[in-house]
């Protein structure tokens, strides 16, 4: 629940963890992102034109990483697009508020709600409201999972009005300049029932993400997991073969994320075959015969 991140600021020196106000969460270090096509240019242009963005693509292909990267890039001090945050002028960089959608995510989860506070009630902004106010990038992951009433909120925010109605308080909030709504969804993954409505999807420009081509994927896996080049190449080859099995017993091909996990295990000294079994065969399916088939591919590729 978004509220959970809403805890008070903790002294980062004495505590073993970092906690941020959502508006203050910025990406300060450059996330590794290997552009496959012109996605950076398109996204930047959309941002400048205040056009909301829809990212499509299978799980673990780098959608979230791309948004993080863009948040960092757009928040860079030298970046010309940065116009500052009205609410928190001290905060450096571009705030990024990520909301994972689930089937019980309601409008009030996004906008905010009244809480009991002693004898009274207190209004607490939801993450979307805060993003609108802070001019942050609000990333709604797997948006089709959310309940239908959330899309009602999105509509006025995503056209020329850029308004967020806060019904319960009788307010309408105008989005800050830097605000950008980014949503993602996985077309293959959801059932037909949960498809995005045309009235919603036509408010976004859409960018299709695929798993990167073999060479690039190998480079990504190598960089992210610290595995050696040979094994990174083999992992990318494995991915290519396993993805052939999509619709032939597998719902989804293996994600780049899983490959990185496999690479992580390998670089920690786990044998490549075992690492792939754990991170690919077992992770992808519970069907023993499918697992076996994938394992056979793994044992063919890895010594």
């Amino acid at each position: 629940m978004p509220q959970k991140s809403n805890s008070s600021v903790v002294d980062t020196n004495s505590e073993p963890y970092h906690a941020y106000e959502v508006e203050e969460f910025t990406i300060d270090e450059e996330p590794y992102y290997l552009p496959i096509q012109d996605e950076i240019e398109v996204f930047t242009a959309a941002y400048e034109q205040k056009i909301p963005v829809l990212l499509k693509g299978p799980t673990g292909c780098g959608k979230t990483r791309f948004v993080e990267y863009m948040a960092w890039r757009l928040g860079k001090p030298m970046s010309t697009v940065r116009k500052g945050n009205k609410q928190n002028p001290d905060v450096q960089g571009k705030p990024l508020i990520t909301i994972a959608s689930h089937e019980d995510l309601t409008a009030s989860d996004l906008v905010g709600r009244f809480l009991l506070d002693g004898e009274q009630t207190r209004w607490v902004d939801g993450p979307l409201t805060r993003a609108v106010k802070a001019g942050a990038i609000c990333y709604l992951d797997e948006v089709v999972e959310a309940r239908k009433d959330t899309t009602v909120l999105i509509h006025p925010l995503t056209d020329h009005r850029r308004l967020l109605p806060v019904e319960k308080r009788g307010q309408i909030i105008e989005a800050a300049d830097g605000f950008l709504l980014v949503i993602s969804y996985n077309p293959g993954y959801q059932s037909a029932l949960k498809d995005l409505k045309q009235s919603t999807r036509q408010r976004f420009i859409a960018m299709e993400f695929e798993y990167p081509p073999r060479e690039q994927e190998a480079a990504i896996v190598q960089k992210e997991s610290g595995v050696d080049k040979k094994n990174a190449d083999l992992l990318a080859r494995l991915a290519e073969k396993v993805r052939n099995l999509k619709e032939h017993g597998l719902q989804e091909g293996v994600s780049t994320r899983l490959l990185i996990y496999a690479g992580n295990l390998i670089s920690k000294g786990i044998s490549p075959r075992r690492a792939c079994e754990a991170a690919v065969a077992q992770a992808l399916s519970d069907d023993p015969s499918v697992q076996r088939s994938i394992n056979e591919i793994i044992t063919s590729i890895f010594e």
């Binding site: 073969k241 396993v242 052939n244 099995l245 032939h248 017993g249 015969s289 499918v290 076996r292 088939s293 994938i294 056979e296 591919i297 063919s300």
Partner: peptide
Amino acid sequence: APILQMYARGLTGGD
């Protein structure tokens, strides 16, 4: 056969 068939599909990318 089911295992190898899937294996073959994985390797070739064909049906």
